[in-house]
Design a protein around this nucleic acid. Structure first.
Lengths: 143, 143
DNA sequence: GTACGTGCAAAGGGTTTGCAGCCGC
DNA sequence: GCGGCTGCAAACCCTTTGCACGTAC
């Protein structure tokens, strides 16, 4: 049984009847080599040697998101950011409004609370977003 | 001392040296007559009789956001949503991915947890976003 | 060989901006 | 009257899409 992201994605494609192409392999590989968060353009630039079009980057990110390999996150900017999901625990973000730095923290306790609330509302919870906005240590002083 | 949103906003404008215009008054008034969440276009349509341009709607929303009268919220769509803030408690959202319904819940306990985490990271917390995505009661069945 | 995937360029949708005229102060 | 405010239209940016060609199967 496959455990590498690339192979897991290939399995996903096979199971769903999608073609397994070298472009898709290159993109997944790159996605999982990215540290932290990235947007579509950053990913595309990281792939410049592979001559992949930005359109295909978007299409593959969409596929990866549906497959649950990648999660779209929003840091208050207009455009989307992504993070890969495999082998990561639930976590939230503290986002600095001044320098954009993102601090992650475990969000298990938030999950528990939110599950209670979802249950009370007969809501089927699929995903939780826990984020704090403000100023990081380095930026507090230079207000 | 003013307590109506419109008068509070006028005070804010005066204090900051902005002009108090009839357009700005119309927009605040309409913002605080909106129930729940709205986007810029919905607000603009609600103002159609007042012949306000969409550009001014955006500019005034920006002003209202800086003044802390309005909060920008993201429901996973590409464009921004807003909600007014005055006289409202901290709350989070459960967003239905199928029908878009938004259920609000009190988020005081989340705040407490998040404050602890912020403190540990020497992070100055200004705002918290607590959101759950999934399926509401009505949409669970018709999956 | 057929259907799906890709690159390219153009279109799309939400948001911002430059500018000329208008209005608050 | 001056400087900020507004409407208009054009510009912007990120994202999606139509189409012709390429590639997996």
């Amino acid at each position: 049984m496959a455990t590498q992201p690339e192979e897991l994605f290939v399995e996903f494609l096979r199971r769903r009847g999608f073609n397994i192409t070298s472009t898709r392999r290159k993109i997944v590989r790159k996605v999982f080599s990215m540290h932290g968060h990235f947007d579509a353009t950053e990913l595309w630039e990281a792939l410049r040697d592979d001559k992949v079009s930005i359109a295909t980057v978007y299409r593959t990110l969409d596929l990866l998101e549906r497959a649950g390999f990648v999660r779209r996150v929003s840091f208050g900017e207009a455009h989307a950011h992504y993070e890969h999901v495999l082998g990561r625990n639930d976590h939230g973000h503290l986002v600095c409004r001044r320098c954009g730095k993102v601090i992650e923290f475990g969000s298990a306790r938030f999950r528990t609370l939110l599950n209670e609330i979802a249950e009370k509302n007969e809501f089927e919870l699929q995903e939780a977003v826990i984020q704090g906005f403000g100023l990081c240590r380095d930026c507090r002083g230079s207000k």
